[in-house]
Design a binder for these strands. Structure first.
Lengths: 204, 204
DNA sequence: TAACCTACCAAACACTTGTTAGGGAAGGAT
DNA sequence: ATCCTTCCCTAACAAGTGTTTGGTAGGTTA
């Protein structure tokens, strides 16, 4: 026998899995996870509800795979940035740019993450969400603190407020961003960084 | 007979209604509307599921009342600001401050609004959500354009991107804000405005 | 040809959901 | 003492939920 697989799904082509997960992610993002029925996903994918269980253990495991795949890719990019040894301002710029690239690639997953991660974190299966969020906070807050110490960022701001500000401004973009909509991720990142770093008011 | 009331709920004290709506809003905000069962709300309020239908027509009408009450109060404040004839920068400052006050007063409703408004807007019953959103965009975008024309705001930014940026930075605060948590709404508004207007970077 | 594997369907299962109907206890008004 | 109003409970309903079981068409392999 080959290497032990999951219980239900004995054999399956990875391509078909990805297809189904993509449509599932789209529906989850549009309707919300709980409001989405397994039959709706099947409809959208062109098969019947029960047939999904040939590919996946459960509705929850679909969500799990969508989110963990996204987070893994995200941290690949983040870790590369954090390991590059850049200065605080350049690190922030690189993190923001990388974030918008991830939104471009995984906008459905990001939207789901934002809507559901809070109450999903309560389930032990999704414990990695809390881990990721802590690692995230450590990276961003640490960089901001480095920047304040190095004189790159203002000292008169509450640093935790600043952190939440920067974090939120980046990720809520997933709620309105549509790929191929005039602005490239890099272009959006540039404008966002310009606003966050220098403000929208005219200098005297 | 007294003035005609709704179908089911013949008589009821407005105070009790508000109590129940408050706990319902809290649960909706924490778990999401669809993930919240009517039994869970009843549990939290200390009565049984069926008893809620003495006070309300349906689960949906609870949500409706929560959101419309919030939006009515919000527009009371906004309209006052917009009618004051302030300059663009002062208008933005006043709108942001007012927004944080509303988050302070209706944080549960705001959280619900953010999570659910997108797909609720599809239902004709919640058509006022779309109306409100359009009015909202008109007010903010208009003020920003006025500011650009008057030389108060930068001209090199995409104005719609700026609008979404300012809008989102304000309202996502509802996801982490907790009343009585050190910062007053006015204090948070001051810091947010400082970041949005002048940026977080140190000036040369 | 026969055996096998992949990917699906058809039909049902147990359970949860929002909602309703009828009743009753407490208390004020008559 | 009787009635009425307010507020809740008990008990059930029908529809919709995620999931399972057994079967099967069509291609690949032996």
């Amino acid at each position: 026998m080959p290497t032990n697989k999951k219980k239900t799904q004995v054999t399956a082509s990875p391509e078909r899995r990805r297809e189904l997960l993509a449509t599932a992610a789209e529906v989850f993002a549009a309707q919300g996870y709980n409001a989405t029925t397994v039959r709706r996903i099947a409809d959208e994918a062109g098969l019947l509800a029960g047939s999904l269980y040939y590919h996946f253990d459960s509705k929850e495991s679909m969500l799990d795979e969508i989110l963990s795949t996204f987070l893994n890719e995200l941290w690949e990019g983040y870790d590369a940035v954090l390991a590059a040894g850049l200065g605080p301002r350049e690190t922030i710029e690189a993190l923001v740019t990388e974030s918008f690239r991830e939104i471009d690639r995984h906008r459905a997953a990001v939207a789901i993450y934002q809507k559901e991660s809070r109450h999903l974190a309560a389930l032990s299966r999704f414990g990695y969400l809390t881990e990721s969020q802590q690692k995230f906070e450590k990276a961003w807050l640490g960089t901001l603190e480095r920047g304040v110490a190095a004189g790159a960022f203002r000292t008169d701001l509450d640093i935790r407020l600043t952190y939440r500000f920067v974090r939120d401004t980046v990720w809520v973009a997933a709620s309105w961003y549509r790929p191929g909509g005039g602005h490239s991720p890099e272009e959006i990142a540039r404008q966002y960084l310009s606003m966050v770093l220098d403000g929208i008011a005219v200098r005297e």
